[in-house]
């Protein structure tokens, strides 16, 4: 059912001449923790199939914005639409919304007491109501895609960080989400393990046409894979544009100084 929805969207991706319904629409999102205003009116749009990178200094609100999109941390004010549905409205089925939005965490957050396979099947069975056999077949297929089928029965504790993150990606993808959110998916990894995870993400963005919002410090990834880059600074989007252009020719002093530090 959802698969067809994704298939329908594909031919219209990336600025065809018909207007495309955005995958994600953020309208004037504000978020405060107590007295601290972390997001101060963020508006942005992500079209289906697009990969958008969120960059910015530590504490600028990137994670907070990402966590607003799947309401893990609901905005204080503002409106979020996902494929047309206002998910910030009252009485929205949060679990249904979240099950269509995958999220990959910096520290993987795999379930340590479950095997790689069971990490993936638990939500398939509980949320998608699949039979054990159906769920395991789908989980194995996803593990195959990230090159870890042979480790299906391993516990996270016995996997490398890179392998754990690939299992975590497989866990999200198995839900067949419309949108994937990545929060510094490679920041906690040893340098030699980063590439394997980035390759999976690159493949997802280019071959599978997944809609992705990626918080990252990997500027090469942003440049090569993403369609657009949003630069966040103190809770607002200070600058945005096509990846290559924005990174090569920053307009604001803040972005210029940020890039000079990270590049």
């Amino acid at each position: 059912m959802e698969q067809t929805a994704i298939d329908d969207a594909k031919p219209r991706q990336r600025g065809g001449d018909r207007p495309v319904e955005p995958a994600v629409e953020l309208l004037d999102i504000c978020k405060s923790f107590g007295k601290v205003d972390v997001l101060k009116g963020v508006s942005a749009t992500v079209v289906p199939g697009e990969t958008v990178c969120l960059i910015g200094a530590s504490g600028s609100g990137k994670s907070t914005l990402l966590r607003c999109i799947n309401l893990l941390s609901p905005p204080t004010s503002g409106t979020i639409r996902v494929h047309g549905q206002v998910i910030t409205a009252p009485k929205v089925d949060l679990n249904a919304v979240r099950s269509r939005i995958g999220m990959v965490f910096q520290h993987f957050n795999l379930f340590p007491h479950k095997s790689a396979l069971d990490n993936i099947t638990v939500a398939l069975r509980r949320v998608r109501r699949m039979s054990r056999q159906e769920a395991e077949e789908r989980a194995l297929a996803q593990l195959e895609k990230v090159g870890l089928r042979s480790l299906a029965s391993s516990r996270p504790g016995s996997l490398s960080g890179g392998q754990q993150q690939r299992v975590a990606i497989a866990r999200s993808l198995a839900m067949e989400p419309d949108i994937m959110l990545f929060d510094e998916a490679t920041s906690a990894l040893d340098p030699e393990l980063v590439k394997g995870v980035l390759d999976v993400m690159r493949d997802l963005a280019t071959s599978s046409g997944m809609t992705m919002v990626v918080v990252t410090h990997e500027m090469n990834f942003a440049r090569e894979v993403s369609d657009r880059v949003l630069f966040m600074d103190s809770g607002v989007i200070a600058e945005e544009g096509p990846a290559r252009q924005l990174l090569a020719d920053p307009q604001t002093p803040r972005l210029r100084s940020f890039l000079s530090q990270v590049l």
Binding site: M103, F105, F111, V122, R126, V127
Partner: peptide, 22 residues
């Protein structure tokens, strides 16, 4: 760690299901 609850919730599992299973 809170990340366990967050991972469960982000997969669409309810608070109670995540609590009991994870």
């Amino acid at each position: 760690p809170v990340g366990q609850m967050e991972a469960g919730r982000s997969l669409g599992m309810s608070h109670l299901t995540t609590l009991m299973l994870i």
